[in-house]
Design a protein around this nucleic acid. Sequence first.
DNA 1: CGACACCTTGAAGAGGTTCAAGAAATGTGG
DNA 2: CCACATTTCTTGAACCTCTTCAAGGTGTCG
Lengths: 239, 239
Amino acid sequence: MTPQAIKVACSNCNLRELCMPMGLSGTDMGKLDELVTTRRRIPRGSPLFSSGDRFNALYAIRTGFFKTCVTTEDGRDQVTGFQMAGEIMGLDGIVGDRHTCDAVALEDAEVCELPYGRIEDLSREVPALQSHVHKIMSREIVREHGVMLLLGSMRAEERLSAFLLNLVQRLHTRGFSQSELVLRMTREEIGSYLGLKLETVSRTFSKFADDGIVEVKHRHVRILDIEALRNIVHAPACR
Amino acid sequence: MTPQAIKVACSNCNLRELCMPMGLSGTDMGKLDELVTTRRRIPRGSPLFSSGDRFNALYAIRTGFFKTCVTTEDGRDQVTGFQMAGEIMGLDGIVGDRHTCDAVALEDAEVCELPYGRIEDLSREVPALQSHVHKIMSREIVREHGVMLLLGSMRAEERLSAFLLNLVQRLHTRGFSQSELVLRMTREEIGSYLGLKLETVSRTFSKFADDGIVEVKHRHVRILDIEALRNIVHAPACR
DNA sequence: CGACACCTTGAAGAGGTTCAAGAAATGTGG
DNA sequence: CCACATTTCTTGAACCTCTTCAAGGTGTCG
């Protein structure tokens, strides 16, 4: 397992998804090292990029936690996602040469900057990278379909259940507990993401706690009955 | 039984500007003609592809009108978009090798089949195509952000206004009237897309008609006061 | 032309929002 | 390290928007 030791370390790295497509030759792997130029530290509360910023790179999260949100001139605001280690941000900027949403660190974070020009160049040389980039974008499209389903057809309890299950599942993938999590975002941000008011989020947490499904202490959540959450989301439709 | 092998050439297609990159050399344009292998006719009500189908091509709409929708086991259903001539469908299938949504023709339609393998191969040779594919996917991501904003933060009248404005704008781009349109979808499908019940859609249409903003005769809509629709969407936020 | 899908409208009800107040955490400066 | 200011969270009560249920009307297609 000695040579794999490095690989194992990489598999914990945020860049794994982009840098480690399956079945790479050593040569190709070497080429991918050119992808990352800089790492950037983003203190909590600061934007990595903002709507209107010129687009020139994608970002892979190494550590930390982000939200992305779109804002309109008339003051409407929508959190479009929460991103954690290993996930890619900035895809929105490709189409128009400018970012169309804000990415804000919800805790101190570190990201790898992947200049877009290099991604394009390299993915012409390395088909596995090309394929990987496509998959990342497709995955984001499919994820957003899921959010549309949530926003378009679920009620408050279902939305919050789906949200918690999704978060804890992604955290579990990264080696964290399956039943305990610390929310990095406020009730208002959760509400914005779920299309609910912060009071409704708070009330729904309280209801889940009353029902013995979760234990909630501000931002610390312990899931006591994950099956109950699943049942709430996948409730046999009324009719 | 063989799908008639019409000689299809993007270089001659009048939708070229909608689905193909601009400013190509003659050589590159010639290469792109290899992209489209077949055209397929899809009768109204039939699926072009369904969730679970193996993914192997993207589809460019030549004529007709589609909806895409995701469905869950528990019978939930969400229309994720309506697509018209020049738009690309099937991006959801890239990530998992299978489609994750249904694409259904809402009127008799014709699509160009773009085998995904060829897209990958060709976009390694033709950077303009590579860039174009990325932009198409990014555009879809940005579009979905807009839908999330709509579903997460707008009320019924705002949603329907935004929907009508979006439709009429896209139709106008394709040479249709700026003020008149024929809805190809039912109230229920509109409702699913907008996260509303069909009755609410119907009522909101009636309200707009009462207010002299539109004229609605079943699926025929005439916009009488487009500014009013814009004001409804971009209303100075209540607080 | 008749059956069926689609649309409209009304009335009652539910779920979520709004407004308001207070409590708990977090951050700041002395 | 503590007091204070600020942000965040919780909870209650009234209200409102949208949904649900129901019935009847309209258009469309075989």
